[in-house]
Design a protein around this nucleic acid. Sequence first.
DNA 1: AGTCGTGACGTTATTACATTACATAATTCA
DNA 2: TGAATTATGTAATGTAATAACGTCACGACT
Lengths: 134, 134
Amino acid sequence: MHVEPVLTANQQLVFKALGDAEAPLSAYTILERLQGKGIKAPLQVYRALEKLIDFGLVHRLESLNAFVVCDHHGDHTQHPVAFAICDSCGLVAEFVDSSVQEGLSRWTTGHAFRPKRVTVELRGLCETCDGASK
Amino acid sequence: MHVEPVLTANQQLVFKALGDAEAPLSAYTILERLQGKGIKAPLQVYRALEKLIDFGLVHRLESLNAFVVCDHHGDHTQHPVAFAICDSCGLVAEFVDSSVQEGLSRWTTGHAFRPKRVTVELRGLCETCDGASK
DNA sequence: AGTCGTGACGTTATTACATTACATAATTCA
DNA sequence: TGAATTATGTAATGTAATAACGTCACGACT
């Protein structure tokens, strides 16, 4: 089973800010949006993000230096997730693909590499934006 | 066929700095190492890196904000590459895995997503460092 | 020769992202 | 209760990246 972690005040603020946004937010954008609600300094945001990521509630997008709420259903465990990020509208699709996972785990076991963190990010254009750019 | 691009002076400096290093270098580390050899400002490094990446001679590691020379043999074309990065010794292994590629391209075609740039990075411990950490 | 376009270069300043350091409150639990 | 841990607040600093400007070198035309 899985126990939902209790979020502190700052963590709730940051989590909600991310949930309300429709695109990934940078730490400093989160900061801006929470000025006046109790958040005043970058570190408050970064600390909250760190915990939220630990809890599996939030993902960091490395290629964007930005953050999104995790999208997968029940369990917030450690399976690696992939992201497709639209450079035009900011839409982020989170997905899991078994053959990607197999390929990666085949390589890691074959090379005795012990992975701790996996980043798979596709940057490009979503269907809508790609269609619109014609 | 493929024509080797002619590198400008700054590009050569940056490329050599990366080649001489055994681990990924950040842009500012490159800058430090090239002070006194004609490079004085961040932008000189960033511009050279941009070109080297365009040429396919260098890769950017998103999860590290750092750069390495490309490791694959002959052709420097656009196929997506994956990296395994040891967090302990900095070793970077560059590899291509067909089932990862299939998985990603299956998803993108299925969702009409047009990828422009693909990032696949595994952070963890290489065989040596993992063994040593017991 | 002159001028035009292009691409690399140089410099300064600024923006964006992230962490260190240190002091203080709150919580847990032996 | 009191020691240990965990969260907090604040300021300063460190690191990564780009904006905005102008200049220089060179080849292509006319």
